[in-house]
Computed example of a mutant assay.
Amino acid sequence: MPTVADHYDTLLAAHYSRMFGDHDAKVAEQRALLERLGLRPEGSAEALDLGCGSGFQSIALAQLGFKVRAVDLSDKLLGELAARRGQLPIEVVQGDLLDALERPGPPAELAVCMGDTLPHLGSKADVERMFAGCRRRLAPGGRLALTFRDLTRELEGVDRFIPVHDSADVIMTCFLEYEPEAVKVHDLVHTRSPRDGRWTLSASFYRKLRLSPDWVSERLEAAGLRVCHREIARGLVTLVARAEADVGRDTKADTSAANGG
């Protein structure tokens, strides 16, 4: 059974950035989001980008004044980030984000796990482990920003086929199969040969966790990360949580307010 790392290494990494269009435009979009969420340096300016991909958030964070440690499994995507970072203060780290959180390092003012990285983890227990690791690595008052797709609602029939990218030489389509705790994501990539114009199909799949906004919010609170911002737009969940100075403090009332009741 292919892992997420296998899927990216053998298929998706080569086409990942093109799915999002112009790279600089995507960086600008992410910078605007970070600014809207109030995520600017206020203290040490140390930031962790967990599952950074080709660097949309890492570059945006560095442009805002953060010193970024960018972590990802894919050497190809990290190579793209390294080629684009210029003189920005971005340290590239290849490895598992859970392992990266266990390594020693300065307390972080901000950690981000954005795009749709969170559901790539292997289990809900790994999600909880990540939150605990972030709580340990964040300075008191530091923040964790998450974005992820809510896959708890099942699409049916042809709605499970999702167009991803369409250009003269590459066509990308995604197909979803639902399981109780995960979604099997099949990526179908048609590429046209520049020599003879023939099309070739490459396909692979991996699993994404089905995480509800309520469950993620509850587990953040349990880890000592108080949810201070929550929004859902077209199935994309955005959460910001702050590391409590006193992990044992009761945060139930704060959670209720942040979640609109």
Score class of each variant (00 low, 15 high):
residue 97 L to E: 01
residue 49 D to W: 05
residue 165 H to Q: 14
residue 181 E to N: 02
residue 144 L to C: 02
residue 63 Q to H: 14
residue 258 A to G: 11
residue 192 R to F: 06
residue 184 K to T: 14
residue 136 R to K: 11
residue 105 G to S: 07
residue 212 S to N: 11
residue 201 L to T: 02
residue 142 G to T: 02
residue 79 G to L: 14
residue 104 P to G: 14
residue 19 M to W: 04
residue 194 P to Q: 06
residue 130 M to E: 08
residue 12 L to H: 02
residue 158 V to N: 00
residue 18 R to M: 09
residue 36 R to G: 13
residue 95 G to T: 08
residue 4 V to Y: 15
residue 42 E to L: 06
residue 70 A to N: 06
residue 165 H to M: 07
residue 63 Q to F: 12
residue 38 G to W: 05
residue 203 A to C: 05
residue 86 G to I: 14
residue 232 I to E: 15
residue 205 F to Q: 04
residue 208 K to A: 05
residue 221 E to D: 10
residue 198 R to Y: 12
residue 110 L to H: 08
residue 76 K to L: 15
residue 211 L to N: 06
residue 9 D to P: 01
residue 202 S to E: 14
residue 233 A to T: 06
residue 146 L to D: 03
residue 130 M to P: 01
residue 258 A to Q: 04
residue 2 P to C: 00
residue 157 G to M: 04
residue 12 L to D: 06
residue 141 G to E: 06
residue 127 V to E: 00
residue 130 M to N: 01
residue 14 A to M: 03
residue 41 P to A: 10
residue 107 P to G: 03
residue 239 L to Y: 00
residue 160 R to T: 10
residue 222 A to G: 13
residue 211 L to K: 13
residue 150 D to M: 13
residue 188 L to E: 03
residue 157 G to F: 02
residue 234 R to D: 15
residue 85 R to M: 14
residue 16 Y to A: 06
residue 26 K to G: 00
residue 85 R to L: 13
residue 198 R to P: 02
residue 12 L to Q: 01
residue 98 L to I: 14
residue 35 E to A: 15
residue 46 E to W: 10
residue 135 R to S: 13
residue 103 R to V: 09
residue 228 C to G: 07
residue 252 K to Y: 09
residue 18 R to F: 00
residue 19 M to F: 08
residue 98 L to S: 08
residue 164 V to F: 00
residue 177 E to R: 10
residue 251 T to Q: 13
residue 18 R to I: 05
residue 223 A to P: 03
residue 162 I to H: 02
residue 39 L to M: 04
residue 58 S to Y: 05
residue 165 H to W: 05
residue 95 G to L: 07
residue 160 R to M: 05
residue 200 T to G: 11
residue 173 T to H: 01
residue 81 L to I: 12
residue 8 Y to F: 13
residue 50 L to P: 04
residue 139 A to W: 01
residue 155 L to E: 12
residue 110 L to T: 10
residue 28 A to C: 08
residue 257 A to L: 15
residue 202 S to F: 09
residue 235 G to D: 00
residue 122 G to E: 15
residue 7 H to R: 01
residue 229 H to Y: 14
residue 105 G to I: 02
residue 99 D to C: 02
residue 130 M to A: 11
residue 213 P to C: 12
residue 244 E to I: 01
residue 136 R to H: 06
residue 156 E to C: 00
residue 83 A to F: 10
residue 89 P to W: 13
residue 105 G to H: 09
